[in-house]
């Protein structure tokens, strides 16, 4: 291998071997390779703005029978009466800002360390690379070997936390079979919205690469663990569509929150079936 390199200019990417074919263009791709990272960036930025606004808004997250996934579980004393799960409020009056900020680190961490979203944001935001065979603009690249990106290895812990959150949000969907007065045996469009949100979050979580590993991927001998092999096979099937579930569940969370917010602030009433 040749070891001599060309010195980089001030804005130049990393120096490359002069023994390579000298081609000036960063890429010769003629397709719209920039479209996918651009759309990814726009959608993620829109979600970040919306989620930040709603997380700090500290209002319109509970309707009596529906609770926004951004605020569940609501674990501060200042939560709207009735919104806490079983009255569990370990954070007292001293927590004066939005209770959403207490919990959002977990779903945020799960998505930030997700193997799919890593691809999405490395391409869309960090341009490392923006697309395949398109030169990245950075002079140096160390991957996920150092702080802070090495923290992405904690994905499985956020996955465990995500399972707890999914269970709580599933319970929220069951609680939505009440009317705003708290009487059981009722169902509304909001019930369906919360059920759909919980289902989407479950399939997103169960299709996760860490889940696949924990279920059986870590094994050397599937033949010694037939049940785990079956579980691994099922999760592998879901894992094929992890990207799809990642996006759909992201939209699901935002739309569910928006629905609850619109009902809570009286923009429209939650249509009931019975």
């Amino acid at each position: 291998m040749a070891t001599d390199t060309i010195a980089p200019g001030p804005e130049a990417p990393a120096p490359l071997s002069p023994a390579r074919a000298q081609i000036e263009q960063k890429t010769l791709r003629t397709d719209r390779w920039w479209l996918s990272p651009l759309l990814t960036m726009l959608v993620l930025v829109a979600f970040i703005f919306y989620a930040t606004f709603r997380a700090f808004q500290n209002a319109d997250y509970y309707t009596g029978n529906l609770i926004s996934p951004f605020y569940s579980p609501c674990i501060a004393t200042k939560c709207v009466p009735g919104s806490s799960l079983g009255g569990f409020k370990p954070f007292g009056d001293w927590w004066s800002i939005s209770p959403a900020l207490l919990i959002l680190i977990f779903p945020l961490g799960f998505r930030m360390t997700c193997y799919y979203y890593r691809k999405a944001y490395y391409r869309a935001f960090w341009q490392s690379p923006p697309a395949c065979a398109v030169a990245e603009p950075h002079g140096k690249y160390t991957g996920e070997r150092r702080f802070p990106l090495i923290l992405n290895n904690s994905h499985r812990y956020f996955f465990y936390a995500g399972l707890i959150f999914n269970t709580i949000l599933s319970w929220d969907a069951i609680l939505a079979f009440r009317n705003p007065a708290g009487q059981w045996g009722h169902m509304s469009v909001g019930t369906l919205v919360l059920i759909a949100n919980a289902v989407l979050l479950w399939v997103y979580s169960l299709s996760c690469h860490s889940c696949r590993h924990i279920m059986g991927g870590k094994l050397k001998h599937f033949s010694k663990h037939p049940l785990r092999y079956k579980g691994w096979t099922l999760v592998s099937k879901l894992n094929h569509k992890h990207m799809l579930f990642a996006w759909v569940s992201l939209f699901g969370v935002a739309l569910t929150d928006a629905y609850v917010a619109l009902v809570a602030n009286g923009t429209f009433s939650n249509p009931t079936f019975f």
């Binding site: 490395y122 690379p129 996920e144 991927g217």
Partner: peptide, 29 residues
């Protein structure tokens, strides 16, 4: 640790091996 799983290896594989999902990510785990 250099791999940041942007999946270009999988995209260009003419044998359609799911390199990232089936080899690199399991190895990272």
């Amino acid at each position: 640790g250099f791999c940041n799983i942007t999946k270009c290896c999988t995209e260009v594989c003419p044998e359609h091996i799911r390199i990232t999902d089936n080899a690199l990510i399991p190895m990272k785990e």
